[in-house]
Write a protein that binds this DNA or RNA. Structure first.
Length: 721
DNA sequence: CTCTACGAATTTTTT
DNA sequence: ATTCGTAGAG
């Protein structure tokens, strides 16, 4: 066997990880340290050297992109098909388990996957039905609550009824939501995970089967796992010491949606025999960029401790530009892009990264007026567009009459004279009789409870669906889709819509036909599911590529979050201002502040050759002019790696705040970040920030009773705890 | 049913 | 500022 291909391209640490003993391992892989490579080569090693069967490999990722990349790279490396390996996202694999064992998972054979938009609609509907005032109970918040419970593995029935009104109400809503989903055969994303966890937990035979099968379990981006995902992994590997996880605590930026860094510590406790390997050699960025990023992340407490290094030289220093205002900032960045392109650089090697989507605008305007091609990430994706979801809802309701969500979606789309009143009546009747909306509608017509006009319109709808069903019964998937978008009236409906908008929607619908034609049934068909159902699931689980032509040479605009995992020769990290980045909401909580800092670290380490940081001294935000301070993260960067750029020297002020090395690193004095202390008047609090020195030294403290305050150390009477 | 007007909210996102 | 959702009028 030729193992040189597997081993030779690796450095020592990577090699140790790849060829390590067949027990649990924790690979702490810094940014740009070759983490995917390690994962891929580890799997190759197990197969080729240790004789593992492809069949016994399980590899879990968070995104479809990561999963397919891993699969491709394994196939390229080993020159074998990776078909029999289970490589996929947590949700994708959970889904596969549920399809295979629908009965034991207490789900209908043909359950449908709901995306978050569908889920939100169901919740809105539900809140209306039980007459909850949605200004006091915002649907989003309810959705968030339910998902958070599921992510923690908590069923509605397990929520304590502590007498807390909010809790009590939420429990009721959650319970009704569960009922609706069960009755309609709908499963949301969080439910995929929770149900598949329960499936394994409650069925010893099934669990045993998969434990036997998956001799080698691998997890990518382990720091992003939430409670239920960890519990799921734990079940599969319990007592087997075969869990190989790769992650980076410094790149944990999804705490706000339930990711638990603690899972790394949990892992260390639960797999006592494990081995830890740190990958610290970086193959992406120059020395200056790494030094700057290292110093920033070093300000966080309680890290696993890693320091990136490179042997490829310092490179250029990091640029810093203090813009006059947000327009000047955009102007400066686009000017930088122009220079780069003039010197022969590619636009697609450039990224503009920002904290919040709203910031993209000024850059778009500037790019547009200079006619620079660009692409903004994070818009609606193909399968999330309303017209596509409408078409899919037709297909769904045809195949599954009890799917209330789809029924609601298309009952009056395109409009066919079924008004709010009639729909409400159907809903009420359905609820009273415990029927699906479809069945309720049928019954209402049959029992002549409706006015002639209403009955007519409703019967027309049912008949339309019935006709579509019959006429497309024998068609291939793409023909079926084509037939439905044409004969449901959707195409005609959107053709009516004036402007490019309707035109674009029609084009999208036509594109859906192509998507159906291109859909590779065989590749996905493992479950005993019809082609249409597979396609619908595919649409929910993989919302599809974002808009824009990847082939064009475009400047890339995206949030810091969506930049994770990517790299660019030239990175502009913009809007480094207190209140923006770190965001306002994170200022008062050290934990969230540290997550912002990690986000900053992620952003900086995206840059390969050149990193430019900018902030504005004045910014229009929500229609108001604000005068933010430079971000604390700038002060954490070692000055020797920084180079201030001044496009218009007389305008931008000298950067005193940035140059003065503040005590923010927490090395000197008796106060450091996170330090608990007590003030005679304000009570107890936590140190968030330290600035200045000597008589000027001041600390920002978050007091539990009175909130955030700045205190001069020279005057304040403080006592450390 | 569609259009307009007014008020409220406004980090980050994958599945 | 802008967007989004709802309430009320036409």
């Amino acid at each position: 066997m030729d193992i040189t291909k597997i081993i030779d391209p690796l450095n020592d640490a990577q090699r140790e990880a790849v060829s390590g003993p067949g027990r649990s391992m924790l690979i702490l892989a810094g940014a740009g340290s070759g983490k995917t490579r390690v994962l891929v080569h580890r799997i190759a090693w197990q197969i080729q050297v240790q004789g593992a069967l492809p069949h016994s490999i399980l590899a879990v990722t968070f995104t479809n992109k990561a999963a397919s990349e891993m699969r491709t790279r394994i196939e390229d490396l080993l020159q074998i098909s990776a078909r029999s390996m289970w490589i996929g996202t947590f949700h994708g694999l959970a889904h596969r388990l549920l399809r295979r064992h629908a009965k034991q998972a207490k789900l209908p054979e043909s359950f449908q996957v709901m995306d978050s938009d569908d889920q939100l609609r169901v919740i809105k509907r539900l809140l209306k039905d039980i007459n909850l005032d949605d200004s006091r109970w915002p649907p989003r918040q309810v959705q968030w609550f339910i998902n958070a419970q599921k992510d923690e593995g908590i069923r509605a029935s397990k929520i304590l009824d502590s007498g807390d009104f909010f809790q009590h109400q939420m429990k009721l809503v959650y319970q009704s939501y569960e009922d609706i989903c069960r009755r309609s055969g709908l499963v949301d994303f969080a439910e995929l995970l929770l149900s598949s966890y329960e499936l394994l937990r409650d069925n010893a035979d099934i669990l045993d089967f998969y434990q036997q099968r998956f001799q080698h379990v691998h997890v990518d981006e382990f720091q992003d796992t939430n409670t239920i995902q960890y519990a799921w992994l734990r079940l599969l590997t319990e007592g087997r010491d075969n869990l190989f996880v790769v992650g980076d605590d410094d790149q944990s930026i999804y705490g706000w949606r339930g990711a638990k860094i603690e899972n790394i510590h949990r892992f260390q406790r639960h797999y006592p025999n494990h081995k830890v390997i740190k990958l610290e050699q970086n193959y992406r960025s120059t020395g200056h960029i790494l030094k700057a990023a290292n110093q920033v992340i070093a300000c966080n407490e309680g890290r696993m401790g890693k320091e990136l290094w490179t042997d490829s030289g310092d490179g250029e220093p990091v640029s810093l530009y203090a813009a006059f205002n947000e327009q000047d900032e955009a102007y400066f960045v686009v000017e930088g892009i122009r220079k780069w392109v003039n010197e022969g650089g590619k636009r697609s090697d450039i990224a503009i990264l920002y904290r919040s989507n709203a910031q993209s605008r000024q850059f778009e305007e500037r790019l547009m007026s200079t006619r620079t091609p660009y692409r903004v990430y994070g818009g609606l994706r193909f399968f999330e567009r309303a017209e596509i979801k409408n078409a899919l809802a037709f297909l769904r309701i045809m195949a599954h009459h009890e799917d209330d969500a789809s029924f609601e979606r298309v009952i009056n789309t395109p409009t066919r004279g079924i008004g709010a009143k009639l729909i409400a009546d159907i809903r009420t009747f359905a609820r009273e009789q415990g029927l699906s909306l479809w069945h309720a509608a049928e019954t209402l017509i049959a029992e002549k409870h409706l006015s002639a006009r209403a009955a007519n319109a409703l019967a027309g709808f049912l008949e339309l669906i019935g006709q579509l069903e019959r006429q497309t019964a024998e068609m291939a998937l793409f023909e079926k889709v084509k037939y439905v978008i044409e004969h449901s009236g959707l195409i005609a409906f959107y053709n009516e819509e004036k402007g490019d908008k309707g035109e674009a929607r029609v084009e999208n619908l036509e594109e859906l036909v192509n998507a159906a034609r291109a859909f590779d049934y065989d590749r996905e068909a493992e479950e005993n599911l019809g082609e249409l159902d597979m396609f619908l699931t595919h649409a929910a689980l993989e919302a599809g590529e974002m808009q824009g032509d990847a082939f064009d040479d475009c400047v890339q605009l995206m949030t810091l979050h969506s930049a994770k995992g990517l790299e660019f020769k030239q990175v502009f990290l913009v809007g480094l201002e207190e209140g923006l980045f770190p965001s306002q909401q994170s200022l008062e909580d050290l934990g969230r502040l540290e997550e912002e800092r990690r986000l900053c670290y992620v952003g900086m380490t995206r840059a390969m050759e050149h990193l430019t940081l900018t902030y504005a001294e004045s910014r229009r935000l929500y229609g108001r002019e604000i005068y933010p301070n430079a971000s604390r993260f700038l002060r954490e960067i070692p000055p020797e790696t920084l180079q201030e750029v001044r496009m218009r020297a007389q305008i931008s002020r000298p950067l005193t705040a940035v140059k003065s090395r503040a005590g923010g690193l927490g090395s000197e004095g008796k106060y450091k970040l996170g330090q608990r202390l007590k003030h005679a008047k304000f009570g107890e609090g936590v140190v968030l920030q330290i600035e200045g020195s000597g008589a000027q030294e001041r600390v920002q403290v978050n007091f539990s009773e009175v909130g955030v305050k700045w205190l001069m150390l020279a005057y304040a009477k403080l006592e450390t705890l």
